[in-house]
Design a protein around this nucleic acid. Structure first.
Lengths: 260, 260
DNA sequence: AGGCTCGAAATGTCCGTACATTAATTTTCG
DNA sequence: CGAAAATTAATGTACGGACATTTCGAGCCT
């Protein structure tokens, strides 16, 4: 976090200027320097105080508004509405397809790639025979927008499909789509399981979260039309960085709940 | 909706130019002139096509991104991610209702019931004013079939609805249905958030799981047609006792994922 | 066939200018 | 003194310019 405004003039490479200003203001709000219900300095004053353009101020304020920390209105000013954001990243699902959509807002960074012969436990999960040749790829999942790491993925695919590993994280497209286009396979069904887990030391270290902190664990098993497993990916999201959310609407007859 | 681009040059007073462009693009997406998965024309082309500044194009695209209709990335372009905003796609699907169905297979065992004046943080979650009178009911959730405890629920309802607390767990029906039948309220929408957490000592002890073990945390916020929060329930499930699981099937055209 | 490099395409960041709209405050007038 | 008008304060809309960063596809090499 920033200690003085002029550091915005020559920002480090990793963060855009508006993001730094947003962080500074967010910290001020978190420390109750601006209490909930109070008004932030206006755009013109923030410009001169932090020595950035009005555009940059507005982008920063927009970030805070999207986090629900402030509310902005003409003639009134910028009012603090919350002291802290509710969650860092809320993956708005919208529809069942939303469980497949998170890949578009984030990218894979492959950190491991090993060939293996599946043992009994893994054979059960992959529904293949023991000793079959598979490939395990480990990858971090990073948000495109603000570079925050949101997950650790373990991805299993048959050795016959190992050719797509080079393209993972380098080419657009989800892993199953890479397999489909490269090998002519066809995913017909995805089984999704949602549960919770604890981060072990390796995963915690890679993501920068405490060991044994809570992870939201989402497992997707991809099957072709004959029911064979083509791909299995398991992603652990740090609980304080990633939340799935969706709305259910009442059906017309009042009894059913439908995806919004 | 616009019929031709040059109408943006002299917009009617009621809508800003960027809003009109967003509407035009949204309509094009809704009519599948840009299919889900396809790429919209780039910013420069939209500028010349609609004769507005790049700033206006970007504002319009930002609107669509916030609606979840598009995803924008450097080097890639603007990809259509949904045909309609999330609230417009209404089709009777099985899986979403599953997020409401667990109550039928388990029962509530009320273990606590206290009146409270909501503090600032809780006021934000309940979207009511600070100091408002609410009721917090704590309950365990036990499977009917084999009596296994599967969760700890914290249930918040306005003090005006406290009359249903006696019937919770003793009368058939979910809490929101009790409120509806007793007080004539009507739930129109439920917002669901899924994340992970750790069990504190109190909850771990009640459920017989280790302290700081992983919990799957599901929060449901029930709203009436005016958007007011009628009920909020947050349930922590022990990860090894409860998992949400569901299937997604490929849509007919191969691009959409539908609940099975 | 797979991997690497490079240039073009595309969006992101950041600066500036100007005017419009809305709300709050101050001033004026009856 | 109260109401209306004017002024000020604050954000919203829209134009322009420039450079930075990321991705993708083509071409080349092994």
């Amino acid at each position: 976090m920033l200690k003085c405004p002029d550091m915005l003039v020559n920002p480090p490479r990793s963060q855009p200027r508006y993001r730094r200003l947003a962080d500074a203001l967010q910290q001020a709000i978190g420390e109750s320097r601006y209490a909930v219900g109070s008004t932030l300095p206006g755009e013109l004053e923030l410009m001169s105080r932090y020595r950035v353009s009005r555009h940059t101020v507005r982008e920063a304020l927009r970030c805070l508004a999207e986090l629900g920390l402030i509310s902005r209105n003409r003639g009134i000013g910028t009012v603090v509405t919350a002291r802290e954001p509710s969650s860092a990243h809320v993956q708005k699902l919208g529809s069942p397809a939303g469980w497949m959509r998170y890949a578009e807002d984030s990218r894979l960074e492959v950190i491991g790639n090993e060939a293996l012969r599946v043992d009994a436990e893994l054979a059960r999960r992959l529904e293949c025979r023991r000793g079959a040749p598979w490939r395990r790829v480990t990858a971090l999942r990073r948000m495109r927008a603000d570079r925050v790491l949101i997950g650790w993925s373990d991805i299993y695919l048959p050795e016959a499909y190992a050719g797509v590993v080079g393209a993972m994280g380098r080419r657009a497209g989800r892993v199953y789509e890479l397999i489909e286009s490269r090998f002519g396979a066809r995913v017909a069904r995805v089984e999704v399981e949602v549960t919770a887990d604890l981060f072990d030391a390796q995963r915690a270290s890679a993501l920068g979260v405490p060991v044994n902190s809570a992870s939201l664990c989402v497992t997707r098993r991809y099957r072709d039309a004959s029911g064979q497993v083509l791909l299995l990916s398991q992603t652990h999201h740090p609980a304080e960085r990633f939340t799935y959310s969706f709305d259910l609407l009442r059906g017309g007859d009042g009894s059913a709940w439908l995806a919004a």
